[in-house]
Design a binder for these strands. Structure first.
Lengths: 172, 172
DNA sequence: ACCTGAACACCGTTCAAGT
DNA sequence: ACCTGAACACCGTTCAAGT
């Protein structure tokens, strides 16, 4: 006698993403997720392998967002920053390297910036240009999210200044 | 009747730093630290407030190393990278923002790069220059440690290339 | 004074028993 | 088929009792 499904992987991941942002990684317990989706904790294991697996799914959801960006280097960089601001905990989770995601998802996430960098520096220098911009952008966002820029000043201005200088430097 | 002290804060932090590098944050249990220093887990609470407190001490040990750097921007950046390579888990812990350290230790850690940036860009532009270089360097190192640069190529070369271009861009 | 065994609360996970 | 209560292992932490 089948029982109707009372939740779904999507609902679980969605609940987990919200909990991560509000309560942090420590607050992301299977119990908290279960309450949120309306089942008991053991039922979650019908949909996800483990808590670590759930965390991986959260990371891959953020990487998916990063895969769907378009435009020149300024547009892509701004979009990445917007995604980071929307879900800071998830973004830092992805960038911290604490989570091993599927290679394919990871590669897909770096496509847009690689494409924008190629348009800027030409195909021969696309890789090194993309690396330089990506390093700077993720570093900037990371410090921004951590309060590592607590010495005052306008962050939007610092972002625009740094990106402009970087683009000029890459053009050579 | 006093009992001789069988361990110390230094021994505990030192053991914890080693465990963090070999077994990761999840492997850093109070039990594992206790075994390493030769006491039972409850005894650790005579020296550190909690596991989170111990993790903070680990982070501050890395920040202390970052405070004692000297030289121009190339020397300081290279030294930061060397520290990151020596203790990657601790470095990523510090940069991930998962740990709140004392403000003073944090500020001291950014001194050397600020000084080097001032020498490069002049006092008026020191802050923005330091931010740009720091963002790039921490981003680069973070991606390097996470395997985020898995598209091939020589990383030392990419580092030198990026830093050189960045310095040129900052000089204006 | 510091150290320890025992105990407690909390969490991830498993599983037999329900429907 | 999916859901659940009960149970287990593990971990952080407290504390009374030892020396």
């Amino acid at each position: 006698m089948p029982t109707p499904e009372r939740t779904s992987v999507d609902a679980i991941v969605s609940a987990a993403r919200d909990i991560l942002e509000t309560d942090g990684l420590a607050g992301l317990t299977m119990q908290a997720v279960a309450v949120r989706v309306g089942v008991r904790a053991p039922s979650l294991y019908k949909r996800v392998e483990s808590r670590d697996d759930l965390i991986r799914l959260i990371a891959e959801a953020t990487l998916d967002e990063l895969s769907n960006l378009d435009g020149d280097i300024y547009a892509v960089a701004a979009a990445v920053r917007r995604i980071a601001h929307a879900r800071p905990a998830a973004f830092q989770l992805v960038m911290s390297g604490a989570v091993r995601t599927s290679e394919a998802v990871f590669v897909a996430a770096s496509e847009p910036i690689l494409r924008a960098a190629a348009a800027l520096a030409g195909p021969d220098n696309a890789l090194v240009a993309a690396r330089t911009v990506t390093a700077w952008a993720t570093g900037f966002i990371g410090m921004e999210l951590n309060g590592g820029f607590n010495l005052g000043g306008d962050l939007d201005e610092a972002w625009a200044f740094g990106l402009e200088r970087l683009v000029a430097a890459i053009r050579g």
